[in-house]
């Protein structure tokens, strides 16, 4: 009788462990992450798949963005802080969608504001308008220039999702804009503990 209870509770425990509620959306089917080569914040060519073996949090934005992009990057800083503050298991990559204005130097200064706490620095990628268009299209990132009459010059309209790539370089999840750092961290920690989870 006691044994039956024990087994019952164990089953409930396993089920609870299986039903992690993901905040992100998994691509269907899960497959290899699209790869691209751009210029990194030091001015050198950088291929995304060079990061194979690490978890990658990939986001697109631009440095003339004081509202949406700092929100996303501060969330990714917080995810890194929660999941891997001292390690090199989680790498944040920020790709510009404003190739006309963003240079390796501006990318370095911009992402450098958010990775101060970590030994492992965030990557800030730029490139020619054609290279950026190709790298954006691979992740279905949409963007367009908008003349708004602001004293700050034109503004970029852009999708603002975060993409999670696993150490086998598979695209595992897409997080819609505004998903909180704690929620992204919870999904990432779940994957780290359950590598086969879908």
């Amino acid at each position: 009788m006691k044994l039956r209870w024990l087994i019952g509770w164990m089953l409930i425990g396993w089920l609870a462990a299986c039903t992690h509620n993901f905040s992100g959306v998994a691509p269907n089917p899960i497959g290899p992450a699209p790869d691209f080569t751009l210029i990194d914040e030091t001015g050198r060519p950088f291929q995304l798949s060079d990061l194979r073996g690490q978890w990658i949090l990939l986001a697109y934005g631009y440095t003339h963005c004081p509202d949406v992009c700092p929100l996303t990057l501060s969330y990714l800083r917080d995810v890194k802080q929660i999941v891997d503050p001292n390690g090199d298991r989680v790498q944040v990559v920020f790709v510009t969608i404003d190739p006309e204005r963003d240079t390796p130097d501006s990318m370095r200064r911009y992402v450098g504001h958010f990775d101060k706490l970590f030994d492992q620095k965030f990557k800030g990628l730029s490139g020619t308008p054609e290279e950026i268009a190709a790298a954006a299209q691979l992740y279905q990132v949409k963007y367009e220039k908008k003349e708004t009459g602001s004293a700050d010059g034109y503004s970029m309209a852009h999708t603002a999702e975060v993409y999670l790539i696993d150490p086998q370089f598979n695209w595992r999840m897409t997080f819609p804009f505004g998903i909180k750092a704690e929620e992204i961290a919870a999904d990432l920690q779940y994957f780290m503990q359950n590598p086969e989870a879908k």
Partner: peptide, 8 residues
């Protein structure tokens, strides 16, 4: 259209 943009 799924894109975020700021304007005055």
């Amino acid at each position: 259209g799924g894109m975020l943009a700021m304007s005055p």
